[in-house]
Simulated assay, not measured.
Amino acid sequence: MFIQSLRADLPNMRWVPEDKFRVYAQAIRGLLTLEPDPERQLKYIDFIDIYSTLDDNEMREYTERYPQESTAMATLSERLRQEGHHQGEVDVIIRQLSKRFGKLSDSDVARVRSATPEELAIWAENLLDARSLEDVFTRH
């Protein structure tokens, strides 16, 4: 719903230069309020950026004027980067386990997908000298 409204309104909005930061901040607030999905939020921030056309100097000034909105988007971006990194580790370990021990059962795949970063780190080390799949999951 947010994006349909944004697509319809943002390109047609006219503002005086003095209101540019306020309009941008309102668009960010609307995005954070109306769109619950963090991945979509990140996607839609690009759309807001395209139509607001803040240059680097203006973005720095915006960050100073609206630290709460800037912090919220930076936190969202960092969280998504961490989730992407974690997903990459999961994918690598699944591939390595499959190559070493053959096709994994659905429960083993689920186990790796639900692992904490700490578990993944231990399993990655265990994988180097494990003789069985169970050795990977139980040895420390």
Rank of each mutant, 00 (worst) to 15 (best):
E78F: 09
I93E: 03
P11I: 06
L80D: 03
P17Y: 11
R100T: 13
H86C: 00
I28N: 06
G84R: 11
L76T: 05
S52K: 08
Y24F: 15
E118T: 10
L127W: 09
E119P: 01
D108M: 02
L54R: 02
E83T: 05
H140C: 01
L128N: 10
K103R: 15
Q68D: 13
E89S: 02
N12A: 14
E125G: 08
E58W: 03
D9W: 09
V16M: 10
Q4L: 12
P36F: 04
A115R: 03
E39S: 04
E69Q: 13
T71K: 09
I48Y: 07
V109G: 00
Y44L: 11
S77G: 06
A8R: 14
T138E: 09
P17V: 07
A72S: 11
G102Q: 03
R79L: 04
I122L: 13
S114C: 00
P117W: 02
H86R: 14
R22T: 14
L31S: 03
Q41I: 02
R29E: 10
F101E: 03
Y66T: 10
N126C: 09
N12K: 15
D46M: 04
L120A: 01
N126S: 10
S105L: 06
E18H: 05
Q87G: 07
V136H: 04
L42G: 00
D19Q: 15
A72K: 12
S114A: 14
K43T: 14
E18K: 11
I122C: 02
S77Q: 10
A27S: 15
L32Y: 03
Q26W: 13
L104G: 06
F137W: 03
H85F: 11
V16I: 04
L80H: 02
A130K: 10
S70P: 02
Q26T: 08
D135R: 08
E69W: 11
I122N: 07
R79Q: 14
L10N: 08
S132V: 04
G30T: 02
E118G: 09
E118M: 05
I28E: 09
L6C: 12
R22L: 10
I122T: 10
A121E: 04
A110T: 08
E134Q: 11
Y62C: 04
S5T: 12
D37V: 01
K103E: 14
T33C: 07
I93W: 00
R111S: 07
S132E: 02
R95A: 15
D91K: 14
E18S: 14
T138I: 10
S98E: 15
R81C: 00
L10W: 13
T75A: 09
S132R: 08
L54M: 08
T63L: 00
M73L: 12
K43L: 12
L128W: 00
M73V: 15
W15K: 01
K99R: 12
W15M: 13
L42I: 07
E89W: 04
P11A: 08
G30Y: 02
L120G: 02
E134I: 09
R65C: 05
W15L: 15
F21Q: 07
T138S: 07
I45Q: 13
A27D: 07
R131N: 14
F21V: 00
F47H: 12
W15Y: 15
S5I: 08
L127H: 08
L42W: 10
T75S: 05
I3G: 04
V90K: 05
R79K: 14
E125R: 08
V109W: 05
K103C: 00
E78K: 08
L32C: 09
Q4K: 05
N57H: 06
A8E: 14
L10T: 06
S107C: 00
Q87N: 14
